[in-house]
């Protein structure tokens, strides 16, 4: 299974989707997003469509700015895409012009967008991570600290003094692992 990947500019998004539909690629599979923090200041939005469910399809890709990104909705082409767009709007803060503005999964008034990589999950930050212990330790050792994926390393995000962390450092820290020594 090899999909053709077509990168388009954000301004051409809805037209590219309509062109796919017009070319007979009518089966909408999914629409999703990835936060590209650290690599570039953008959110990558992807859409997959195929001529029929089991066939090779086309993946449309575009990038919008991480804050205040706006994209035209493809709801007019595939009505089912509105559901995915509502999810992306909830989780990544991308606005879809002409789409369904109702939140899908977040409560109205929720602050922040949880799937942005720099969103801090407060419930995770306050609870001790069971994986912080080393084998053979009864309690987590202070010297060789590990941080779980998705929880900020205090040396990078939290109690940092001086210059704010580079996006690249933030992107590396969201994967979890050993806390690096401060340089």
């Amino acid at each position: 299974m090899a999909d053709e990947i077509r990168a388009v500019a954000a301004a051409d998004w809805a037209e590219a989707a309509a062109a796919l539909h017009a070319a007979g690629i009518r089966w909408f599979d999914w629409l999703g997003a990835v936060d590209e923090i650290g690599r570039e200041d953008a959110i990558r939005i992807m859409l997959r469509a195929a001529p029929e469910p089991d066939a090779d399809g086309v993946r449309l890709e575009t990038r919008v700015p991480r804050s205040g990104g706006t994209l035209a909705s493809v709801r007019a082409v595939w009505a089912g895409a509105a559901w995915h767009e509502r999810e992306v709007a909830d989780f990544f803060g991308v606005a879809f012009a002409g789409g369904d503005p109702r939140p899908l999964l977040l409560r109205p008034g929720t602050a922040g967008h949880p799937l942005l990589r720099d969103a801090v999950l407060a419930a995770r930050a306050v609870r001790p991570w069971p994986g912080a212990k080393e084998p053979g330790d009864v309690v987590a050792a202070g010297r060789r600290r590990m941080v779980p994926p998705g929880v900020p390393d205090p040396a990078i995000w939290g109690e940092r003094t001086g210059s704010p962390a580079e996006p690249e450092e933030i992107a590396a820290s969201v994967a979890g692992g050993r806390v690096r020594g401060r340089r």
Partner: peptide
């Protein structure tokens, strides 16, 4: 500790000596 570190819901706790 691999299972405790991989668990996405943090539900495994291990103590050992």
């Amino acid at each position: 500790m691999i299972c405790a570190r991989e668990c996405p819901t943090w539900c495994i706790g291990i103590s050992s000596h």
